[in-house]
């Protein structure tokens, strides 16, 4: 069955279930355009965060979907996008498991690259998710990073 590529309802998925980036790219291909850009976020392995056992993601059901949809709507106004897909997992995730997928389809590469980057930068600072890291020395909430706010500044349009 061919799923609609432009339906707003299909743009965002928040789930405990894993996703397959390859399958998502195939769905974006149905938009029939010349460029697809994707980003996959993955739970870091031990080398980056010593002793990391798992990461638990909590979110604000309802507001999360609404915020991500609003980010996608802004991206669609800014770039000529044929299809967009954002998937974010919640619950307990182990190192190397998928966390987030952003895919954008457009006629040209720059729109696809830029919109995917824009969506990720906004998602990181606006979408209500919180990560708690479980390590061998205990569990703690991840603190927000100032660099994520700085990343947003490059998207401010000149007035």
């Amino acid at each position: 069955m061919i799923e609609p590529v432009n339906s707003a309802a299909a743009d965002v998925s928040i789930s405990t279930a894993d996703f397959d980036a390859g399958v998502e790219i195939e769905k974006l291909r149905r938009a029939g355009v010349g460029a697809i850009a994707t980003f996959s976020g993955i739970v870091r392995n031990d080398a980056e965060t010593p002793g990391l056992i798992a990461m638990t993601l909590e979110h604000f059901p309802g507001m999360t979907e609404q915020e991500i949809q609003s980010i996608i709507d802004q991206a669609r106004r800014r770039w000529p996008l044929t299809a967009v897909k954002v998937i974010h997992r919640v619950g307990r995730l182990l190192p190397q498991e998928n966390i987030v997928f952003v895919g954008t389809a457009s006629a040209h590469r720059q729109s696809a690259f830029d919109s995917a980057s824009f969506i990720m930068d906004y998602l990181k600072t606006r979408a209500p998710f919180w990560k708690k890291e479980e390590t061998s020395s205990g569990a703690q909430w991840v603190e927000a990073r100032e660099t994520d706010d700085i990343a947003l500044q490059k998207w401010v349009e000149p007035r």
Binding site: G41, L57, H59, F60, M63, H88, I99, V100, M120, L123, K124, T125, R126, A127, P128, F129, W130, K131, W141, V142, E143, A144, R145
Partner: peptide
Amino acid sequence: VAFFPPVTGG
């Protein structure tokens, strides 16, 4: 009214 820490998703 919801209260929460700065977000850390992605």
